[in-house]
Design a protein around this nucleic acid. Structure first.
Length: 407
RNA sequence: GUGGGCGUAGCUCAGUCGGUAGAGCCCCGGAUUGUGGUUCCGGUUGUCGCGGGUUCGAGCCCCGUCGCUCACCCCA
């Protein structure tokens, strides 16, 4: 038996890294006023089709979709925002003026596995719902910058763009398509197709000739309506004020249909092709698109596995004490001591048998700074040996005083 | 979904011209009977990814398949 393709076990030696990442995120989300929300791993397929977009690759060919026993079409979530917005509407949270939420958990996409790309992968994300203010956009970005700093990650680059709103984007799209149609002969096959379906993505193409031939194309930031341009200017100004470095990438587009205005991406140059480590943007129409009241929102998600690839490996924390039992009655005599030590909040490791020598070896390997050796002679006196594994010294301690001796 | 590279012990890998499989690490035991991390001695471990084919004989050659990996694509 082996695990299904594209999924991965998190083994004990990796768990500390996951825990550190999760804990750091929770802490920083709390500092910025976000509350946790936990939503299901599967939803009605229609939710994703309506939010992410029927024509996106994610919905079109990458979802794990199945019919349940009642014949309803369900899908494992390919991203987190759709479910969070659904819950936001359904629960009545949308009646609050402003809500900040964060979530974490597995997402599923049927893609060809690659470095930093799995079929079950994990995201941690956050959403600010109810404010159209560019201050919200900026604060979300500052939060991500703080988060990466707290995680000890440097060398990440922030790229931002504005992709306009329902007012200006259609006008821009027409202008861009006009430009691209005149140059179809110079573009790659994909881009010729995208010119018709999703012309913004042509700007995002990696093919060198496409990039050079679109160098003179109209770019979105120059074609924003006044409201979008103001919004984008405030976001940039706030980032500068907060001391968060960024570059405007006028070619950047998002893969999900629901984005409007601010779009951003944090990337690393150490991850090969899957360089995006976190990304997000504003989605001012999504809530009403899903049947809620008209509510603006902005959010992002970070890729846990990708971030972990960049982070230093954290060692597991060793136990505070290793207990070595070396006599017939040792187990019974030590039982209350074990409970007391653990009750005092200390981490205790032990073996369940074996020679004293092997138990000592285990004690040394465990990394415990001290070990408690309980042999017949000492137990007869109501004591045990407390050994300092670092100093190689030991002394006899009455069983009742073990907890105190460990403090 | 498309293409390239790779699958040998738990891990990292060696294995010549086809001749029947090795090292290091890890793990276990021991070095005078109750004391670890160093050192020394000893020991366990393989459907050579899987299935077929060629051959007297296949880890090695051929085909298929599964998996890993890198890139495309897509995206966090």
């Amino acid at each position: 038996m082996q695990a299904v393709r594209g999924v991965k076990d998190v083994l004990p030696d990796e768990a500390p890294n996951w825990q550190f990442l999760e804990k750091t995120c929770r802490e920083w989300f709390a500092r910025y006023g976000f509350d946790e929300i936990r939503v299901p791993i599967f939803e009605a397929t229609g939710l994703f089709a309506r939010s992410i977009g029927e024509d996106t690759d994610i919905v079109g060919k990458e979802m794990y979709t199945f019919d349940d026993k009642s014949g309803q079409s369900l899908s494992l979530r390919p991203e987190g925002t759709a479910g969070v917005i659904r819950a936001y509407i359904q629960s009545g949270l949308q009646r609050e003026a402003l809500v900040r939420l964060y979530y974490q958990g597995p997402m599923f996409r049927h893609e060809r596995p690659q470095a930093g790309r799995l079929r079950q992968f994990h995201q941690i994300g956050a959403e600010v719902l109810g404010s159209e203010s560019p201050l919200a956009d900026a604060e979300v970005l500052v939060l991500t910058a703080d988060l990466f700093q707290a995680l000890g990650l440097d060398g990440l680059q922030l790229e931002i763009n504005s992709i306009g709103c329902r007012e200006c984007r259609p006008r821009y799209t027409v202008a861009l398509r006009g430009f691209l149609e005149g140059r179809a002969a110079d573009l790659c096959e994909n881009c010729v197709r995208r010119t018709a379906t999703n012309p913004l993505r042509v700007l995002d193409c990696k093919v060198e000739t496409c990039r050079t031939h679109t160098a003179a194309a109209p770019f979105i930031p120059d074609h924003l309506c006044a409201a979008c341009a103001d919004h984008f200017a405030v976001v940039r100004g706030q980032l500068e004020a907060a001391g968060v470095g960024f570059v405007v990438n006028p070619r950047m587009v998002r893969g999900l249909d629901y984005y409007t205005r601010t779009a951003f991406e944090w990337t690393s140059d150490r991850l090969g092709a899957q360089s995006t480590v976190a990304a997000g943007g504003r989605y001012d129409r999504l809530v009403e698109q899903l049947g809620g009241q008209a509510r603006p929102g902005i959010g992002f998600a970070l890729g846990v596995e990708r971030l972990l690839l960049l982070m230093e490996t954290r060692p597991a924390t060793p136990p505070d004490l290793f207990v070595v039992l070396a006599g017939e009655g040792a187990e019974a005599a030590l039982a209350p001591v074990l409970r007391a030590v653990r009750g005092a909040g200390l981490k205790v490791d032990r073996a369940y048998g074996g020679s004293m020598k092997s138990q000592m070896k285990r004690a040394g390997k465990s990394g415990a700074p001290r070990c408690l050796i309980a042999g017949d002679d000492e137990l007869a006196r109501g004591t045990a040996v407390l050994r300092d594994m670092v100093a190689h010294s030991q002394r006899e301690v009455p069983l009742a005083e073990v907890v105190a001796a460990l403090k």
